[in-house]
Design a protein around this nucleic acid. Structure first.
Lengths: 285, 285
DNA sequence: TCTCGTCTCGTACGTCGTACTAGACAGTAC
DNA sequence: GTACTGTCTAGTACGACGTACGAGACGAGA
């Protein structure tokens, strides 16, 4: 990414630094970058913002979002805790930078001419990235959505719809909708993964048969109430909707459904909004 | 909800209490409940688990998830901080209970006979609930998905597909898919809301015209790079994809797309009682 | 030499979750 | 009555956390 673009944080984030020290820091960073382009670096800096962010990402990858503390990152870098604060305004900013950095590592492909395939690829790749870095889902909810690299990716996605004569608003809505679907799926899947490691911790000492017994007892307890016939049917069929094997299929299922509906709307053969089974034929061939 | 069902936590959560005190607590709670049914309560207890959870929810509603600390909840109840720990094993459990309680407050309607309308209602109601209690999204990601009231709601949803001769596995996948879509949408919308309050804090002192100037400068900066033609088109058209007015429409748009695709698959899956070949595959690679 | 801008870092404060512990109060048992 | 026990409340203390503050170190220009 061009260094110019580093400044393309949406206004409220660009305005983030609150105190004078931080403002000085910002200015110096920018100057430093520019000078760094012309001359060789004046001295080997022991710390840099990028190094801090990468370290934080590495720690988060290995041990989860909770392991990212300022003291821990500093220890990892053999630096004093407060040294980090010269390069970074607050932990909040560090988390924002971590997310935006991941966006940069996951740049969307050039348009192939087939918007549907492109969107599928984006969706699959987002999902893969989010799974490789599950801490992202912990942060994403409580944090504003857009840094510069995110902008770059949105721009790419919008280009997928070039030549279809689409209203740009529709293109944005489509892109957002697919994006939100992926977020929902991964949110759920991360939950499930958390449950699994949790189960591991809780039932870990039990033998396989004991574990099955615990689960069997649970099923039995549900059945005994008589109030959950459908769930009992699912459970005794041995179908675990959250099992790892079914996840990919479930993801593709929902994605296909969504893209079918989108394709219908793009084709302009939009059925009357929202009632009944009239859309059954909406699948393109 | 029947008190019997209170115990229907999935096994790994039922097994949660780790130390002896907590195990004693669990046993006592259950006994207490049973005896409480027969006799009038032996004395007016100053604290109860339910009271604690409700208070935590109230605090979270008013001031967000971060405001929920053990000390704060205790203060709110005029109790000692550690008193809470007799009724609740850990803060983790409190958060789980908060989420499950919300599930109970949002019970799905009885089947109407029109699955599509029912699913739409469920989706809209989930979204509404999550927006009324935005702290839920902060917790949901890092926490296992199922308490007893969640089970109840899933059971209800599965009943919507009765009479269609649907494979229960397909019904589960459909329900999950719609659920995850809603989660994704709300996750995004909560992000946007956070951004807005953030903007409020950052640019709050500025006059309306100054604020527009800031945003205009940002647009100009993006345009100047020459690398974001689509985004510039959107921004200068004055279309803010995250604006409050467009959110409902965007939500309904995606939901309709998704339900169209699902309807097609239901229509395709019903005639042959197929093994998902017609339902899940279908798309040429 | 001295100052100044840049960068590092030790100390300290107020927050958090919660382990440990000492009780208070009500109920039986003697 | 006294003693014991089970139920519940609550104070103190510990080790984490984010970070404000301020004392320096170090190279470059005066």
């Amino acid at each position: 990414m061009d260094t110019d673009d580093e400044d393309l944080w949406v206004p409220f984030l660009a305005a983030r630094p609150r105190d004078k020290r931080a403002e000085r820091l910002r200015a110096h960073l920018r100057e430093d970058e520019r000078r760094g382009q012309r001359h060789p670096p004046r001295r080997a800096a022991a710390l840099s913002r990028d190094e801090i962010v990468r370290t934080a990402i590495r720690v988060a990858d290995a041990e989860g979002a909770d392991a990212v503390t300022m003291r821990r990152i500093a220890r990892e870098l053999n630096a004093g805790t407060m040294s980090l604060y010269w390069h970074i305004v607050s932990k909040e900013e560090l988390l924002d930078l971590m997310l935006d950095t991941m966006q940069g590592d996951q740049e969307n492909a050039e348009p192939s001419g087939d918007w549907r395939r492109d969107m599928q690829d984006v969706a699959r790749q987002s999902r893969r990235t989010l799974h490789e870095h599950p801490w992202m889902m912990d942060l994403i909810g409580s944090r504003p959505p857009v840094g510069p690299r995110t902008l770059r990716n949105i721009e790419r996605i919008l280009a997928y719809f070039d030549g279809l004569g689409l209203d740009m608003r529709l293109a944005i809505d489509i892109s957002t909708t697919v994006g939100t679907y992926v977020m929902g799926v991964v949110l759920r899947e991360v939950q499930e993964r958390n449950s699994e490691t949790y189960t591991e911790q809780m039932l870990g000492e039990l033998s396989e048969t004991d574990r099955e017994k615990v689960i069997g007892e649970f099923t039995e307890r549900v059945r005994a109430t008589g109030r959950y016939p459908h769930l009992v049917e699912v459970m005794s069929a041995g179908y675990d909707p959250d099992a790892a094997e079914t996840r990919d299929a479930r993801f593709e299922f929902g994605l296909d459904c969504l893209l079918d509906g989108i394709a219908a709307r793009i084709a302009g053969a939009v059925p009357p909004p929202a009632t009944g089974g009239g859309a059954a034929g909406g699948r393109p061939g």
